[in-house]
Design a binder for these strands. Structure first.
Ligand SMILES: [Mg+2]
Ligand SMILES: [Mg+2]
Lengths: 663, 663
DNA sequence: TGATTGTTTATAAACAAGCCT
DNA sequence: CGAGGCTTGTTTATAAACAAT
């Protein structure tokens, strides 16, 4: 009964699948955080040569940044963030990130209905990256507010993926991934001790738990390695894989076991407990009951459903640095689960049969929100402006996040509207609408925002970033059909829906998290000698190495928030995403817009202001905001398919080859 | 690195401080749940002789039940619930519980401002107990709905306590308890390893953790025994002890250490982690920042604050069964923490200097909601009608919950209004407004409600039951002063509060939990041989032994819910309490009532319907509903002071002696 | 740098309700 | 059909990883 010395490996909070590969350049910067204005470009967070930056032709305070696949996106974001701070209030505040891909902006809508074609050749994935200010800075003392420039990144996704249609999910993906099905799988070979969910001291010191962490050779067994997704993410994958977006608990179990053999083979039975725990804990998962009341289905709150699916994060394995054979699994590869049918793969796809699962867990400081993408040609900026440190890429998975085949963003951006602030919260942590970028004095700054960290001030059930999808937004092409199809599978319950109007729930959002990557955060836990030999990542380093997913949200239409107008078009997006009501203006909007939220599976723009936003968002992409909110909750694929990784790694690429507009 | 055989004792989920004392009367009831109509009165859930039941003079479908202190309230509730079911739809649906106390109904308002007088002699605590139907029964198939009659209990509290004024809290209680202060305490003697919050495998097999479970002698060290409150409860205690109801994290730490020496002396440092975790996790705790943004204060969402304070659950130690000396701590006593100044105690209080802390953790199936109490004389019913099994009282704490000095209900009842149901939820789990009491067929019942268990369908930030207190309700006597005083300490921020209007948050409540005590619930964990020798409670038994607190809520004023009218006055209270918006009707109410919620510290009736309810609730008490919702969240003291426990235990009492109206 | 404060995720477990054998 | 076992759900407790200051 002695206390366990430390949590068993499997119980330990999941380690980041990506060891910090950024070179630990310690203190090469004599001037501390105080003089950040000068440090931003000279510090360890430099941009490599192959980064291109240009001003946005139409959007104010916006620059377009083109980065290769192999670049450490996190580093880029960090550098951009620092740059935004460095430039001060008048500097660029948003950045459009373009990471690889030969597709022009016009071919976004040409890749519909090709679920069987993975690795579709031309799929440009622009990312809009916009600096963002920390929310909670009261108007009264703007000058003394510490402004953390948060980058906003816009991703221009395929229309089909933005549609968030369930059809592009499991069924199609099943085929796409090689015919894997949720129910037709033969039981996997080795799975010890089924049943007995509770451990009951059933551990034999004889047989150490089959937790496969890091094998001595550095190669992990993809079948036994834990997927890099949170339970919440996996549950979303599972539920969204069903056309009707409902699943029983048992189906969720099965889906996860089928797609992540780790849980079938190596995980302790307690993982099911965790699944149930997550279902109960998170408000985004709601339980419905069949007509006869016999069956309970788990669904995702439509407003909160960003339609995460596994295929959105599933990508062919590409090892840039490792010289292992294509079939060899890279060090950090996550278990591919399903064999990809070879004939289904396109030529562009690397020879690997395996796919990498883009990890959800690592947190970054960015998330995606819709932003209007420029269709006009942009200015090409010299790459030297923002030198980027290319991480060593020790772990292939680190690079995999921004490389790989043509999977792209399908993540539903979350709603942007501000929740009304509650009482004191309104004073204490008001939204900041200005775009000033102060060098953020690290010490004597009187941050009136007072929010040291994000806090969801509980504007009801908003737990996940909500995808705000205007009805006919983004791409009218194939969406309607997908939507209709999906709608058909949905229960057409014409219930009057006496709902909504949830009353006096004010309270605002969480304080946005600033994106400070190189900042050394001291772990609360004393860095005592770690007994785990498999822990290979440097302890002192806590920065994330990749960013390929993040909460997404659409920019609020100014018309929806009459009372609050931001200084700049997108700066008012500083609202943290959690617990955001679908209606931007508190009561005014409710009073005027009494129509119940649309019964959709994926969160979209509400009917209320849908028309206005829909028009606007036809050319909108996704804004990746660094207002971090546990990025494990959203996925963004920014990989390119038009280039091979070597080219990108070498930097011998011309951006014009896949971005004609820039040329 | 082997997995810990089982969680160390201190890590184990807290055991119920009350071992199940009810006699395991197995299967003496041939007819199962099917034939509940006949079983209700003959089964193991019988009422002892000293239970009196009478019809309520004014309320329909209501009976008054008088029970002795020593009675197992849980058993009573279970029996009443069964009775309610047994009687069918036409039977009594609400019960007013009167548990001890010599006070008549008129002396409810005569005990104001006596914080220093614990054990005040005459304080009758009526409880209204009302059967309640399970929510989620669609209208369409009412007949096949399984109706779990949920009792509703009304507690008639003292006005001062109902006032929920912070003044009656820590400052006064400090004095009352013997001058303990939050900040002026000398550090306690033995506290090992301060600091190092994270364990870091710092456990020496040499020294087993100083977890004081059950000592061999059966006597526990009150200083080292863990208090029976959840972290959430203790945080509420702490914050509500401050006049301004704000506390920094450090102050919360200190308060808890000062009032529960367990955390100062024996708890592992990780308890502070848990405190922080709870603060972040629960929406009811919100963080505010000082004007300069330097200090973060933790507060409780006013709507969710039921103003739990330690004194509400702090009561003098009274051991009914144990013959130990008054100073001896009974077996199950919780650590009293603070010496009660002897001279402050009233004569009625047992000679014990120690106080028992009423546990919050054990869950029951009841909670309190306001109900209108009868002032007219009631009918006295023979006690034989509902025989009650008096539990063996093996553990004194089991009895302590319904015995002890004059502490009484101060818990703010929670709001009753229904949250709008969401989409499918409306169909799947509609509120049931009818009062039919079916015998609930155990098998082929087509429970259209479909909600096997409660689910908070996330009508926003409602995390705790909300106390619904009409402004001038209950007792106009001393409340105004208390309130005003309290208000003065509050920050008078006249912020416009652009809040509320939280949009499309429908989703309803949780499924009420039926009160089935004798029902054998199989633990999911296999009942493998338990290695813990200290585990004394019978394993197979899971029923709760006591009930002395529970979520409280006020009945919704019918005027507030125009669209839904219940068949009976209180039956519409079947709404689960979690996540209930303050406004009952979704949009209609919001549109009509735009006034922001009052900036109070304790949740009360909103201005919207406040007037109507205020008038009504002048004679209202609290309804204790068996719609269980983790009763660890609310406290109800139903102890009596007018009788000694022996009288009650012997059953040699006459109800007329403290309830003249009944005579 | 280190400590404090906050936010999340993971696990284990207690316990309830209800299904199923 | 009835008791016990198993499944499903809900909560609380702990530990830990990380973030921000
Ligand atoms: Mg849930
Ligand atoms: Mg909180």
């Amino acid at each position: 009964m002695k206390e366990s010395p430390r949590r068993p490996l499997i119980l330990k909070r999941r380690k980041l699948p990506f060891p910090k590969s950024e070179p630990e350049v310690p203190h090469d910067e004599p001037d501390g955080p105080r003089s950040k204005d000068t440090a931003a470009l000279s510090g360890s967070q430099c941009f490599p040569n192959n980064i291109r930056i240009m001003d946005h032709p139409s959007l104010p305070d916006t620059q377009v940044v083109v980065i290769p696949k192999t670049a450490d996106l996190q580093s880029v974001l960090g550098a951009l963030t620092a740059k935004g701070k460095e430039c001060g209030p008048e500097g660029p505040t948003k950045f459009i990130l373009l990471s690889g891909g030969s597709g022009s902006l016009e071919d976004w809508s040409d890749t519909l209905g090709m679920p069987t074609s993975e690795g579709e050749s031309s799929s440009g994935n622009p990312l809009a990256f916009s600096t963002k200010r920390e929310e909670g800075i009261p108007q009264r003392d703007l000058k003394e507010c510490r402004v953390d420039a948060k980058p906003l990144v816009t991703v221009k996704p395929l229309s089909k993926e933005l549609d968030c249609s369930p059809l592009d999910d499991s069924l199609t993906n099943i085929q796409w991934l090689g015919g894997m099905t949720t129910d037709g799988l033969a039981p996997n070979p080795g799975k010890r001790d089924e049943g007995k969910e509770s451990q009951e001291s059933c551990q034999q010191p004889l047989q150490p738990p089959r937790v496969c962490e890091e094998r001595p050779g550095g190669i992990k067994d993809p079948q036994s390695e834990r997927p890099p997704y949170s339970y919440m993410a996996m549950i979303q994958f599972a539920i969204n894989s069903k056309k009707n977006r409902k699943m029983t608990l048992k189906e969720i179990y099965t889906w996860i076991e089928d797609h992540f053999t780790y849980f079938r083979n190596v995980a302790k039975p307690g993982w099911k407990n965790s699944i149930r725990h997550n279902l109960s804990l998170h408000d985004m998962f709601i339980r419905e009951t069949s007509q006869d009341g016999k069956i309970s289905y788990w669904t995702i709150r439509p407003e909160a459903n960003r339609c995460l699916t596994l295929d959105q994060v599933y990508k062919p394995v590409v090892d840039v640095t490792a010289s292992s054979s294509p079939q060899t699994v890279p060090v950090c590869e996550q278990q591919p689960m399903k064999r990809v049918v070879p004939e289904l793969k396109k030529a562009i796809v690397p020879s690997t049969t395996e796919r990498k699962i883009k990890p959800l867990l690592p947190r970054t400081d960015s998330y995606l929100v819709p932003i209007q993408l420029p269709l006009a040609p942009s200015i090409f900026l010299p790459s030297a402006q923002l030198p980027l440190v290319s991480p060593p890429q020790n772990c292939s998975s680190s690079a995999a996040s921004i490389q790989g085949g043509g999977k792209r963003v399908r993540i539903a951006p979350k709603v942007l509207q501000r929740a009304p602030l509650h009482t004191d919260a309104l004073k204490k942590e008001p939204l900041d609408v200005a775009l000033s970028h102060e060098p953020r004095p690290s010490h004597h700054r009187k941050d009136a925002s007072g929010s040291r960290r994000k806090q969801r001030l509980a504007p009801p059930s908003r737990e996940e970033p909500v995808l705000l999808f205007p009805e006919s937004s983004l791409f009218d092409s194939g969406l309607a059909s997908d939507l209709s199809t999906f709608q058909d599978t949905q229960d057409t319950d014409a219930e009057p829906k006496t709902d909504s109007g949830s009353p006096g729930r004010e309270h605002a959002f969480k304080t946005p998290i600033k994106s400070s990557h190189p900042a050394s955060s001291t772990p609360s836990k004393p860095p005592a000698a770690l007994p785990e030999p498999w822990r290979l990542t440097p302890l002192g380093k806590q920065g994330q190495s990749v960013l390929d997913f993040s909460p997404i949200r659409t920019p609020r239409d100014p018309a929806l928030t009459p009372q609050r107008h931001s200084h700049t078009p997108f700066s008012f997006n500083s609202t943290p995403f959690k617990d955001l009501p679908l209606f931007s203006s508190p009561r005014e909007l409710l009073a005027s817009a009494r129509s119940p939220p649309p019964a959709r599976s994926c969160s979209r723009e509400l009917q209320v202001g849908g028309a206005a936003l829909a028009n606007r968002s036809l050319t909108e992409g996704l804004i990746l905001d660094t207002m971090n909110d546990s990025l494990s909750k959203i996925l963004v694929d920014i990989s390119f398919s038009g280039l091979d990784d070597e080219d990108l790694a070498m930097g011998n690429i011309s951006w014009s080859q896949f971005i004609p507009e820039l040329k």
